[in-house]
Design a protein around this nucleic acid. Structure first.
Length: 260
DNA sequence: ATGACTAACGGAGTTAGA
């Protein structure tokens, strides 16, 4: 089972790009972020035509996540538990089943958190604490779990071309990186890092200042696997070539292949 | 150098991204 995640930066603007990549990469499950669409406006038909069941959790104008799946989808959970006042559409969870087994799949869009010291930054950190609680509960299920999405965290200096340029950014703050390590230390496996070691493994390049041309990127899109999923990990990768396409997202897809 | 792009909303500039 191939599970991918991609922050497409607007489904309306990215529909053709997304469909082109789906035809080439042919993932079984796709987690989308920043669909920037309410559920009723999401263009589900072209995805259904490619064989996907479509589950969305959107809102007007920004944010919004989705899960596309070629096999059956059950037990959908909308929103990250822990704060009834949080109205931002950033979290979607569902069980994807085949004849060979089931995987609990999360599509998340973690808050950016800039600028440091603002309410947005404290929202990011509290959101990550809620995520830690949820991911701990998921481990207790003792089943394959793939927590995929745009984490908006640069885990280590190796995950940026110019780490010094991010020292005053919420994505690279010690608090953000510690919170990410706490997720790993629950017992999750950073699949893309493990299978794409070394420098220059990036998933985001800014639209500005020729970042793509200079490979001035960062690695902020991650797939964390529970032990039961990591045991089934065959391969993982980053589809960086999509960043060079016409009308690209500023993020590229990352994916894992599991024996399920 | 908080600039540089891009998308959504709305119908001109503002908000948000990272």
């Amino acid at each position: 089972m191939k599970i991918a995640t991609w922050n497409i930066n607007g489904v309306k603007a990215r529909i053709e790009t997304t469909l082109t990549w789906l035809r080439e990469a042919n993932p079984d499950v796709v987690c989308l972020q920043e669909i920037k669409s309410i559920d009723s406006n999401f263009p589900a038909e072209p995805f259904r035509d490619l064989g996907y069941q479509v589950t969305t959790h959107g809102q007007k104008g920004f944010n919004g996540v989705a899960i596309l799946s070629k096999s059956s989808v059950e037990d959908v959970m909308i929103g990250l538990p822990g704060d009834d006042d949080d109205v931002q559409a950033r979290y979607l969870e569902a069980t994807v089943s085949t004849a060979n087994g089931a995987v609990r799949v999360v599509s998340l869009y973690l808050p950016n958190g800039n600028p440091i010291g603002s309410e947005k930054f404290s929202y990011k950190l509290s959101w990550m604490m809620r995520l830690e609680a949820r991911m701990k509960a998921l481990l207790a299920e003792e089943m394959p779990v793939a927590v995929a999405g745009d984490y908006n965290v640069i885990p280590t200096p190796e995950d940026a071309k110019r780490p010094q340029a991010w020292t005053n950014d919420a994505l690279f703050q010690p608090e953000s990186r510690t919170a990410f390590r706490r997720l790993i230390n629950l017992g999750y496996y950073d699949a893309v890092r493990a299978t794409a070691p070394g420098p220059d493994q990036y998933t985001f390049w800014d639209y500005q200042a020729g970042a793509w041309q200079k490979n001035d990127g960062i690695r902020i899109d991650h797939i964390l696997l529970s032990p039961q999923a990591a045991d089934r990990l065959d391969s993982a990768g980053i589809d960086r070539e999509t960043r060079g396409w016409e009308k690209p997202s500023d993020h590229v897809p990352v994916w894992v292949e599991l024996t399920i």
